[in-house]
């Protein structure tokens, strides 16, 4: 049984993070943007787990739990905002919410 190099775990995290970032940039649908944020947060979590595993310490997992908590709170508030936006603008287009244009 060969050892998994730590870089590979981090590469996985980077790839997932970048995919989430690409999705965030190319999507106009605000729910998709929320999903992309979740992907990116998850990728960050992977990086913590990999680091925790490398040093054999529980701290990485603790950090993941914090990220998880944050993600849960964020998604609940984000979804509430999406609902409000949909009710007010009758669309999920993030570009429609540009009243703050300078």
């Amino acid at each position: 049984m060969n050892v998994i190099p730590a870089e590979y775990g981090l590469i996985l995290a980077s790839v997932l993070f970048t995919l989430g970032l690409v999705s965030l940039l190319i999507r106009r649908n605000i729910i998709f943007m929320l999903i992309s944020v979740e992907i990116m947060l998850n990728a960050a979590g992977i990086a913590f787990i990999v680091a925790g595993s490398k040093w054999a310490q529980p701290d990485g997992q603790v950090m993941f739990i914090f990220i998880l908590t944050m993600a849960a709170a964020e998604v609940s508030v984000g979804l509430a905002l999406i609902l409000q936006m949909y009710h007010q603008l009758k669309t999920l287009d993030s570009d429609a919410a540009n009243k703050m244009k300078g």
Partner: peptide, 18 residues
Amino acid sequence: ILSFTQSGILRWYLIGVV
């Protein structure tokens, strides 16, 4: 110029972050 960047379009801001 700066106020031009304040476009109100979320993805432009994200591009800035990237």
